[in-house]
């Protein structure tokens, strides 16, 4: 098979699609900036234990006398609180770096899982058609007619608190977006010649779906996945803010903001302000990257 395709590829002199995508992506300075910010934040979250001045989970290392110190103040142990300290005397910068980790993990894990589930469901619906199609897509329609926040809220009320439960709720909320998009893409791809060719070759169903249909349905799914990581992070933060998200002992960015709410009216602004700025930065960076990806991967805009 490879022997037959090689000369054709050489004739067409096509460069690899990744190179083209990278080159087109780089055309937007704003998107590059977003990507740079995102990479920096990812690295910061990854090396948080080495980067942060204090271990925010080690409650023994905290001193209640240090609580609510304004930015720049020096703690009892001579540590400088660059961004102030929270209600328990925790260094905000350290807590934020660890919180960023949790937010990113929740966002990425839930999106990858819902991408896998949604893509399979959507493609299966399009590929098999008939009753399967009607059933899956009707569930998707019904779910998408509900605001995501409400579905997640009720699910978490039923499931209880915890990071794993937040991730489950986020998957339950998000899979439908991927299913709908994969369904749409697969309906178009299904009738193309390469699928017919693959069918003529007598390939098995799973091979057809996974090796031939899936790669060609991926571009729109990647775009949705990028944007949905931002949405998932926001949603997690919102749920944590309402007290239905991650546990208090391992605060995500949303939880930190929520903790600061208690002190906001007495003028202690930094506990809510800085985690929110970081959260916003993450979301803007992801949205900028996602916007540009949408333009690059959209076949209708291809020059």
């Amino acid at each position: 098979m490879t022997d037959a395709t090689l000369p054709v590829a050489e004739l067409a002199k096509t460069e690899s699609p990744w190179k083209r995508i990278a080159a087109e992506f780089a055309e937007s300075k704003l998107a590059l900036f977003g990507l740079a910010v995102l990479v920096i934040l990812l690295v910061a979250a990854l090396v948080a234990p080495w980067l942060s001045p204090q271990d925010p989970y080690n409650l023994a290392g905290l001193d209640i006398m240090d609580a609510r110190q304004p930015p720049g103040e020096i703690s009892a142990e001579g540590l400088r609180f660059l961004l102030g300290s929270d209600g328990q005397g925790r260094d905000m910068l350290s807590a934020m770096l660890y919180g960023l980790r949790i937010s990113l993990v929740v966002g990425v894990v839930s999106v990858v899982a819902s991408l896998a589930i949604g893509a399979m469901a959507g493609m299966a619906a399009a590929y098999f058609g008939g009753k399967v199609d009607a059933l899956i897509m009707r569930i998707v329609d019904i779910q998408l007619s509900f605001p995501a926040i409400l579905v997640a809220l009720i699910l978490l009320a039923v499931l209880g608190n915890g990071m794993d439960k937040v991730i489950i709720a986020l998957i339950a909320v998000q899979w439908a977006y991927f299913a709908r998009s994969a369904h749409g893409a697969a309906l178009v791809e299904r009738n193309k010649e390469y699928i017919e060719a693959a069918r003529c070759l007598g390939l098995g169903r799973s091979r057809m779906l996974l090796r031939h249909l899936l790669p060609n349905c991926m571009p729109p799914l990647i775009v949705i996945a990028t944007i949905n990581i931002a949405r998932a992070i926001t949603l997690e933060a919102t749920l944590s803010f309402l007290g239905l998200g991650v546990p208090v002992t391992e605060p995500s960015l949303g939880m930190l903001i929520s903790n600061g709410f208690d002190y906001l009216l007495s003028g202690v602004y930094w506990i809510s302000l800085f985690p929110g700025v970081l959260l916003t930065l993450v979301i803007i960076a992801i949205n900028l990257v996602g916007d540009q990806l949408r333009d690059v991967l959209n076949p209708r805009l291809k020059r």
Binding site: A230, T234, A237, T238, F241, G254, I257, G260, F261, L264, L265, G267, Y269, S272, L273, G276, L279, T280, I283, I284, N287, L288, D291
Partner: peptide, 29 residues
């Protein structure tokens, strides 16, 4: 507009309280 839909809804609320209710005292919280 990018900023507008990137900002987490609840955080905007807190920041508005901080500025207009706590710092400036113009509006009730």
């Amino acid at each position: 507009s990018v900023l507008g839909f990137s900002l987490p809804n609840f955080w905007v609320g807190l920041m508005l309280i901080m500025v207009f209710a706590v710092q400036l005292g113009w509006l009730p919280a």
